[in-house]
Structures are given as structure tokens and as C-alpha cells.
Design a protein around this nucleic acid. Structure first.
Lengths: 193, 193
DNA sequence: CTTTTTATAGCACGGTCGTGCTACGGTTTT
DNA sequence: AAAACCGTAGCACGACCGTGCTATAAAAAG
């Protein structure tokens, strides 16, 4: 059955396995052996697609960024000019919060990679890219509401990151409803209200 | 020189070494060997004070909580009834932000332990305690300003955690001045203003 | 049919880690 | 003086990790 497989597809499957392992047990558990087991492959097979362990992790990190970008882009294309700007912003900002189980896993993976990037130069640039991306989106959203203060952008970004962090670390104490309530409160308190 | 040493003092020195290692290289680097080298001891000596690796980490985590509590308590005792409530709250909330180099290291250590606690049951209760503590303080601060909404408490807690997170991960993009500006903006936008 | 390519798997080596255990010298106690 | 204690250090073992390398068999190319 060797050549019938689409390499791109296999790579995606392995990356998916990385996500599951990281979400479940943290980035320390994302060893080649654990990922191989999770993917139902042998270590040597995983290494056929990712030459080294760092390469596997950076590929997974890049895929995570790609997913977030895709979700934001999809959400943007769903926009209608007649939509209430408030709701548009709320919906868009919610894309960064763990409002359902799938996003909860994704946020957990994001947190693991972001923190690892603090001390791992290999992941540094990807984390910086994500950091900058959130600020760009936040700035655009505030623009839409007539707010241009860069401090307000940082403020919104901090709330989103803080909510995501707390929801990932204490999912039992911070459900989707609470996340939405805090986000709504934040938007209500914007000066341009 | 065996018996002349105060055991408590030695334990504190070792924990200090753990802090330095974690702040510099992340919790993955907090191995017995690395900590021993950092403390200028042999692995066997470290194990004389901390029977196992988990015990060393939980002791360090507990010490971190103790320090934060001590700083909050010290700040509270410095209060004078005639102080401006606004400034009091700002000063107290600032205790949770990396406004100087010492606090930056402490925040980095906090972040590492908090994230590790997500997947390490050993650290779980300590992280939960810290999480709850921040909300208690935040709630009391808002009370002082006439705000009693629990959602506002969660909002303030999210901002503080988010700022600390971002400052720890991207210290070059988020200096103390920006942190203070965002915190001030947050307090200005409270409904009770 | 033969050759090349590729997906999968496995082995072996060097390194690191946590930990059980022992050794030794200086201190305290009897 | 002898015995018990404690701080410090080191060894050895089993486990796991990343990685260089090789083997095999199926598919593709010639």
C-alpha cells in the first residue's frame, strides 16, 4: 500500500495527531514516539514525513496559525454591509475564544505552543506572527466601531488572550456563556458607545 | 560543614535555583540535574531536601503563591484611608503585572507553572488556588470602586492575566508603560466612573 | 521484466532523566 | 571514646528520547 497515499494527506494526519497529544497532555508529551502511536504509525514512518522533531513541531505550529487565519477569513467573508457592527465585532472576536469543544482544544494547543515559544527559538517567529496578527485584527475591529486608540487595541487583545488562557486552564470555571458575557461587557464599555 | 546549615535556608536556596532555571529555560529545563547545577549542589544533595522531582516542583509552586500573597498583603498594609481609591486599586492590581525585572521573572515562572498545571494533576490544586485568589482580590478591588458585577470581576481578572501573559511572552513589545496605560484605561472605563 | 522510487518499519547508539542505594566525613549525643 | 545523626556526594539501573542507518515490500518507471 505504499504509493497510493497522498503525502500531503499523511502529513496532515500526523499533525492532527500532534494536536491531540498536545491538547491532552501538553507539549512535553509531543514526542516522536507518542505522536507515532497516536497516528497509528511507527516512529520511522513519522520521520519519513518530518525529518526531525523540531520540524514536526514547527509544522504543527504553522498549521495552527493557518487554521486560525482561515477561520477569521471565513468569518470576514460572511459579512454583510447591513449587519450590526456590534454583532460583527462580537462574532469575530469570539473566533479567538474556546466557545465550543473544537475551539477549546485549539486554544489549548495555542497556549502550549505560545508558552513553549518563550524559551524555544525555533517557535519564536511563529508565535510573534500570531501575536501581531491578533493585534491587527483587534485594531481593525475597533476601527469598525470608531475607536482608534492603540491602547484600546492592546486592551482588547489582552482581554481575549486572558479569557482564552483562563478558559483553557480552568474550563470548569469559565464556560462559553461567561466568556461571551465578559466579551459583551468589554464592547459595551468602549468609549465610542 | 554538615550540620551548621539551616535546613529551611537550604530549601529556599534550592527553590530559588528552580525559579531561575524555569524563568530562563522553561519548566522542561527544571530537571534535578539542572537545578542542582544552578544551586551549586549535587543531585543527591538536592534530593536530600526534596525526596522526588514532583515534590521539588510543587514546593517551588507553593513558594511562588506564597510570594504573591505576601506582596498583596504588604501592599494592603500600606493603605491609608485618605488615599484615592482609584490609585489604590491601580497600585494593587499592578502587583500582578511584570512592571520590573524581578516581577517579570516571577510572571514567567507563574505562566510556566500555570500552563503545566493544566496537564499535571500534581500542580492542579495550587493553580486553582492562585486562580481563585486573583478573582477574590479583583472582586475586593472593584467593591472598593462601587462595582459588584461578577462579570466585571472576571473582566478585570482576564485583563490582568492577559497583560501578564503577553508581557511574559513578548517583553520587547509590551513594556511597563504600556501595561500601566492599559490598566488605567480599563479602570477609567468602569461603569462606576 | 528490470530498475527506481517511496511508504513503512525497525535497530542501535549516545544522551538525559528520575530514583534507589551506598559511602564518607563532620556534628551531635550518649 | 563510642554511637547515632546529618549534609553532601556519587554510582548504577531502567526508562525514554532523538536520530543515523538499514531493510522490505509495494508501486511506478524504463
Amino acid at each position: 500500500m505504499p504509493k497510493i497515499v497522498d503525502p500531503e494527506e499523511r502529513r496532515r494526519e500526523v499533525v492532527e495527531a500532534v494536536f491531540r497529544v498536545v491538547a491532552r497532555g501538553g507539549i512535553r508529551q509531543a514526542t516522536l514516539q507518542n505522536v507515532a502511536v497516536e497516528a497509528g504509525l511507527a516512529v520511522g514512518s513519522v520521520r519519513h514525513y518530518f525529518a526531525s522533531h523540531p520540524e514536526l513541531l514547527t509544522a504543527a505550529a504553522r498549521e495552527m496559525v493557518r487554521r486560525v487565519e482561515a477561520r477569521v477569513r471565513a468569518q470576514r467573508e460572511r459579512l454583510r454591509p447591513e449587519d450590526d457592527p456590534r454583532e460583527v465585532v462580537e462574532e469575530m472576536a469570539g473566533q479567538f475564544l474556546p466557545l465550543d469543544a473544537a475551539r477549546a482544544d485549539e486554544v489549548a494547543v495555542w497556549l502550549e505552543f505560545a508558552v513553549a515559544a518563550r524559551t524555544d527559538p525555533t517557535l519564536g517567529s511563529i508565535a510573534a506572527e500570531l501575536h501581531q496578527g491578533l493585534r491587527t485584527v483587534a485594531g481593525r475591529l475597533l476601527d469598525r466601531l470608531g475607536v482608534t486608540d492603540p491602547v484600546a487595541t492592546e486592551h482588547l487583545a489582552a482581554v481575549l488572550d486572558g479569557l482564552a488562557l483562563n478558559a483553557a486552564l480552568h474550563p470548569d470555571r469559565l464556560g462559553p456563556d461567561t466568556l461571551r458575557a465578559v466579551l459583551r461587557l468589554h464592547l459595551e464599555q468602549l468609549p465610542g458607545a
